[in-house]
């Protein structure tokens, strides 16, 4: 792994479906930082991650990746965007993590296959290497994608809601991996909705709600005033309409 440079954003504005998704965001993800990306649904979190790897065009502003090419930045998409019925084994999905380095044509080395099996064991799926991904539960599939991230060995990791729809055990395993990557000095940005988890594990937080609300140490970024501005405070109990007779 090469050491991550800072990722600098200057007055970045992003549009999604004709609407402004992120407005005038400036700041930087420091090398080795572990940042939670928090905000209500539709706040532009996914769009921002996609823009950081160059999959989404900037409407305005500039992203300085400090010399990293997009392949140096690993993006874990929300798992619903992947075709889970594709006829492929877990080990092959994991091995594709090296596609950025060995390209379209070079053969995948035996060492990569071994590494893929080890990565599957690391995420707690030692017996799943030769099983098709269609047989996996949502949580197991997310573990496979984390195993692929291990093989990608990228200095910068962007994780989009990695714990959505996974059980507590899986969340523990994946969180352990994130902490291990953090200890290795990788830069990590993770979209999360569980604010207690953010406070417990993530030193920094970027709070978005269209416009950036706060970016800095988590306890300050997630102050009550900031959460209110982002629309993250619960306001009133919902009253259901009476069913029609």
């Amino acid at each position: 792994m090469i050491a991550p440079p800072p990722l600098r954003l200057e007055q970045v504005t992003l549009r999604h479906g004709g609407q402004v998704a992120v407005h005038d965001l400036s700041g930087s993800f420091e090398p080795g930082s572990l940042t939670a990306l928090v905000g209500p649904n539709g706040a532009g979190k996914t769009t921002l991650l996609r823009a950081l790897v160059g999959l989404h065009k900037l409407a305005a502003g500039h992203v300085d990746r400090g010399g990293l090419v997009p392949a140096d930045i690993a993006l874990l998409p929300q798992s619903s965007q992947l075709d889970r019925h594709f006829p492929i084994t877990c080990a092959d999905v994991v091995a594709l993590g090296v596609a950025g380095r060995c390209g379209a044509f070079r053969p995948i080395a035996t060492s990569v296959r071994t590494a893929a099996r080890e990565a599957l064991a690391t995420v707690g799926l030692p017996d799943h290497a030769d099983r098709p991904i269609a047989a996996l539960s949502t949580g197991q599939f997310q573990r496979v994608l984390f195993a692929r991230l291990i093989l990608q060995d990228a200095p910068v990791l962007l994780l989009d809601e990695p714990f959505a729809a996974v059980d507590a055990t899986t969340e523990d395993v994946l969180l352990g991996l994130i902490e291990a990557w953090h200890a290795e000095g990788r830069t990590i940005v993770t979209v999360l909705h569980d604010l207690d988890l953010v406070r417990a594990v993530f030193p920094d937080t970027l709070l978005l709600s269209g416009a950036p609300i706060a970016w800095g140490p988590t306890d300050r970024a997630l102050s009550e005033a900031n959460r209110r501005r982002a629309g993250l405070l619960r306001t009133r109990p919902v009253r259901l309409p009476r069913a029609a007779a």
Partner: peptide, 22 residues
């Protein structure tokens, strides 16, 4: 034979292909 691997990757996970190999 030439496009086999990128084609599999593009079918499985187009976003991943776009980022890693383009």
């Amino acid at each position: 034979a030439v496009i086999w691997r990128p084609l599999i990757l593009e079918s499985l996970d187009p976003g991943f292909l776009a980022v890693t190999t383009g």
